[in-house]
């Protein structure tokens, strides 16, 4: 694809935090491209750098964070952009959906006030107009009786309804990019599917691109076109949904998939990944996943692996790509 047509192009994004015990490298050289309207998922365990990289894009990290690399959004460099300019972008061009809808609303104001505020901040609507548009937005995300619900307070909304309201708030200004940070983690499983459906519908209507950050591979399958698996601040495997689910080439991705229950799998037991994720302060000198990997070889302890193409639009970061059994053989 032509670079000019890309909505977002992230190149070698690196984030580290100054801590008392030294530098903690949270994100180490992440790159990806996102076309307008496209949906990409970033999957990883806690501490893999998935949330940090998206917060870095919006300039929402604390001052102790050191960010380098490049992130071009609609032709503008996001990294190092002045705060004032970022404020104009946040919520207008790039909007964020937070994980916990319980705490992401101010308990003192009505839902309508808060959705309206998203518009007022950017001077796009105010007062009565903002309120009536808030009601329209609530209707769009499937909140029943929006006219009455805009006057209610967050505590009167159930978790699912509140997450819908969060989505309404995020799309208030028709952003070009939605960043959904674990949008369903705090919700019941039955509600999760509904919320994801709402997100898909909304994206269909507004044409917004989405970065879906999650640890739940099951959620990814139905709602993203491409996936990026992160581990220890690095991208370990990236590819289309199809290639990643049917032909994962990286031992970590394979481990994630075998630790997930599946209806079509006859295996009697789930296979967990042994060990724990590495500490950000003390990364293994070789491959970050090396110590937990069952296919580990001598070279894995020596230097980090490179992300290499293993198929069409499919790359994996592994020294032993040639020795890793194919998923079709493992899961059969």
């Amino acid at each position: 694809m032509n670079r000019d047509e890309l909505l977002l192009s992230v190149n070698d994004l690196t984030v580290s935090f100054k801590t008392k015990k030294g530098m903690a490298a949270a994100v180490r050289g992440v790159s990806f491209d996102l076309a307008p309207g496209e949906s990409m998922a970033i999957v990883g365990e806690s501490g893999s750098g998935k949330s940090v990289s998206s917060l870095a894009l919006l300039g929402l990290l604390p001052k102790s964070a050191e960010i380098s690399g490049s992130a071009m959004f609609q032709g503008e460099q996001l990294i190092g952009m002045p705060e004032k300019q970022l404020q104009g972008l946040r919520g207008r061009k790039i909007a964020m959906i937070f994980q916990d809808p319980m705490t992401a609303f101010n308990p003192l104001f009505t839902i309508g006030d808060q959705i309206g505020e998203a518009m007022e901040v950017h001077g796009l609507a105010s007062g009565k107009e903002a309120l009536s548009r808030s009601a329209d937005l609530l209707e769009m995300v499937g909140v029943p009786e929006p006219g009455r619900r805009v006057h209610q307070y967050p505590h009167e909304f159930s978790g699912g309804m509140r997450q819908r309201a969060m989505i309404a708030m995020a799309i208030a200004n028709k952003p070009d990019l939605l960043i959904a940070d674990e949008p369903t983690t705090a919700l019941d499983v039955t509600i999760q599917a509904q919320v994801m459906e709402v997100l898909a519908d909304i994206r269909g209507e507004t044409g917004a691109a989405m970065i879906l950050i999650t640890h739940d591979l099951g959620l990814v399958a139905g709602s993203a076109e491409r996936v990026q698996v992160m581990y220890g601040g690095r991208v370990f495997e990236r590819g289309t949904i199809r290639s990643l689910f049917y032909d994962p080439r990286n031992p970590y991705t394979q481990g994630l998939l075998s630790s997930m229950p599946r209806v079509d799998n006859n295996a009697e037991r789930l296979v967990p990944i042994q060990g724990t994720p590495p500490s950000l302060l003390n990364m293994p000198s070789g491959c970050a996943f090396g110590p937990r990997c069952s296919h580990r070889g001598p070279e894995c302890g020596e230097r980090p692996a490179e992300l290499v193409e293993v198929g069409i639009d499919h790359a994996s970061r592994c020294h032993r790509s040639a020795h890793i059994p194919r998923w079709s053989e493992v899961s059969a």
Partner: peptide, 24 residues
């Protein structure tokens, strides 16, 4: 609080956040 984060992510500046989210 996450709603202050959310307000920042929505593009609100520091004084707006103080006025509408903290003072009340």
């Amino acid at each position: 609080m996450e709603y202050v984060q959310a307000a920042r992510a929505a593009g609100a500046g520091p004084f707006r956040i103080i006025r509408t989210h903290l003072v009340p």
